[in-house]
């Protein structure tokens, strides 16, 4: 089998998987909310409502596309694309499993292995916010503008904590390569970065909180904030454009769940079984990722929303100082030989 075909198979597998997860999340969001609120949830289309995402897709395609009169035409059309593409690009470097043999070629189960994949995924993934900001601005609606404004302020505030908690992992592993970070955590369960006491759990907690803010998810979903802003940045959007925003959000959540798994829970590593077969590794990775995706939903339907000034206070006055101190402690302990 020629090498380009192997690449093509990997790309189709991983992107097909990503889109499937995003579609499944749109159903899971409603199913989990129903479950938490003691309701049934969607159960009309297909068994257990499983075909609901397909029905939604068909509905989105046939809906009328509305562009507000005062809207900036170019940016209004560009924004949903800008929101959906970056998280999809970011997933290219996630190391889902170790070495796989496809048609006689031994290759790794990720689309690209970069030396600086950590930087790549954060840099590209962070661009998704432009879709939200520009969508909010170009709609020419005060609710949308406020949503976009909040999204940009929130993004700038929490990006710092996110990067500083990643920095702890990078310092511990001594590399920016995601695959290398995963390999570093092979062996007993205590090799996982979350168990790198005392800094690991703190970095993990900061990272998870920051991912909620970065993906504009509850309890930090101020860009949408239905009770205050109607629909926030996507108030004026309809049909497939609206769907693209949600595709982008679910893809971003998937990427963040993957990153949490890679950085803190040893990626596809099975504790005490360093050279497990790749299928088991992949299953292990996907179940860890699935847990964090569930966590997004669980938190959304359990916790109340913050107030915006509380969000800013938490980001700048609590999380940032702790994150900076955490990096210093990590560096000091590392130079003292604590993690040897």
């Amino acid at each position: 089998m020629p090498l380009p075909l192997v690449w093509l198979i990997k790309v189709v597998l991983i992107y097909g998987g990503l889109i499937t997860v995003a579609a499944a999340m749109s159903l899971a969001e409603r199913k989990v909310s129903a479950w938490i609120q003691w309701r049934v949830g969607p159960n009309r289309v297909g068994p257990w409502g499983l075909l609901q995402p397909v029905a939604d897709g068909v509905k989105f395609i046939f809906k009328e596309e509305l562009v507000p009169e005062g809207a900036n035409q170019t940016l209004f059309r560009l924004a949903p694309i800008l929101s959906a593409v970056p998280p999809m690009l970011a997933v290219a470097v996630i190391p889902f499993a170790g070495e796989v043999s496809i048609g006689g070629h031994v290759t790794t189960l990720s689309i690209a292995d970069l030396d600086i994949s950590t930087l790549y995924v954060v840099a590209i993934g962070g661009l998704g916010i432009y879709g939200v900001i520009l969508g909010g601005w170009s709609s020419n609606s005060k609710y949308s503008l406020l949503g976009g404004l909040r999204a940009s302020a929130q993004m700038v505030s929490y990006e710092l904590s996110l990067l500083l908690s990643i920095l702890v992992v990078v310092v511990l592993s001594g590399t920016l390569d995601l695959r290398q970070i995963v390999n570093d955590q092979a062996g007993p369960i205590f090799a996982w970065n979350i168990f790198a006491l005392p800094v690991g759990p703190i970095a993990f907690l900061l990272f998870v909180i920051a991912t909620f803010a970065e993906t504009n998810r509850h309890p930090f979903d101020f860009a949408e904030c239905e009770p205050e802003l109607v629909g926030g940045f996507h108030t004026e959007y309809s049909s497939m454009k609206f769907a693209l925003f949600f595709l982008g959000e679910y893809c971003a959540m998937t990427v963040m769940a993957c990153l949490t798994t890679v950085f803190f829970l040893g990626g596809g590593n099975i504790p005490w079984w360093p050279d497990a077969p790749w299928l088991l590794e992949l299953t292990c990775f996907l179940s860890k990722m699935g847990f964090f995706l569930f966590l997004f939903l669980w938190v959304r339907w359990t916790l109340p929303r913050f107030r915006f000034d509380q969000l800013m206070a938490l980001g700048w006055k609590v999380m940032l100082p702790i994150a900076i101190a955490n990096v210093f402690v990590t560096g000091a302990l590392l130079s003292l030989g604590w993690f040897a």
Binding site: L119, A123, G126, L127, Y130, I133, W137, L145, S152, V156
Partner: peptide, 28 residues
């Protein structure tokens, strides 16, 4: 220069430009 390229995107496109947009939108 992979590192430089990624850092450029991360720092300028990811953070500083978002801040610029924030100010422009804040003043509308």
């Amino acid at each position: 220069f992979q590192f430089l390229a990624a850092t450029q995107l991360l720092v300028y496109a990811g953070a500083i430009m978002v801040l610029f947009l924030f100010v422009i939108m804040l003043l509308n």
